[in-house]
């Protein structure tokens, strides 16, 4: 009975994993077509580097009045767009089942935990380097749902942030 159950779980998770492993271009618009627009708060997680914020803190991120605002549990952290020396986006993936439950799933019978770990969701990474008032360099990493990082990057660049990797749209605008 247990064996049959674990076979069903493994088959189900493998099918779900294969459906999630589509190429990113199929599900998201290309960077060239992204147009800066009015920002609405985006759910994100501050992974590391934000002053006064613990690692892997969940909150919302938006760009407002020339500042990048990260709001978490009624606290607000702000970074001035003008102070941002570099803003870069990237892609990554994370387990759908994380935390304690994710760890416990590794002890599931017949190695079905390994199949569960194949269930992954794609995420965007926003990496920011900025200088404080003394000139000290800080680095911050945010993760957010797929497709959310590029509009934030464009909005930051519009409001005075710098970047070392420009998208095709910005590069084309610069040539004109």
């Amino acid at each position: 009975m247990l064996r049959a159950l674990s076979v069903i779980v493994i088959c189900g998770t493998a099918a779900m994993a294969s459906s999630q492993s589509n190429p990113p271009n199929e599900t998201r618009s290309s960077p060239a077509t992204v147009v800066p627009q009015q920002q609405t708060p985006t759910k994100s997680t501050a992974i590391i580097g934000l002053d006064g914020v613990k690692e892997k803190t969940a909150g919302t991120l938006n760009v407002k009045d020339g500042k990048l605002c990260f709001v978490h549990s009624r606290n607000k952290s702000q970074i001035s767009a003008a102070a941002i020396a570099d803003v870069v986006t990237g892609e990554d993936s994370q387990r759908v089942i994380r935390g304690t439950l994710g760890t416990l799933s590794m002890f599931a019978p017949y190695e079905s935990g390994r199949a569960i770990s194949m269930l992954r969701s794609k995420i965007d990474i926003l990496t920011i380097q900025y200088r404080d008032d003394d000139g000290g360099l800080h680095g911050v990493i945010f993760t957010m749902p797929v497709g959310a990082a590029e509009p934030i990057k464009q909005e930051l660049i519009t409001q005075g942030a710098h970047t070392t990797i420009q998208t095709a749209a910005v590069a084309a605008r610069g040539k004109q």
Partner: peptide
Amino acid sequence: VPAAFQVAVYEN
């Protein structure tokens, strides 16, 4: 090296 990796090294 990905930018996120560089920043993570520096901050850690």
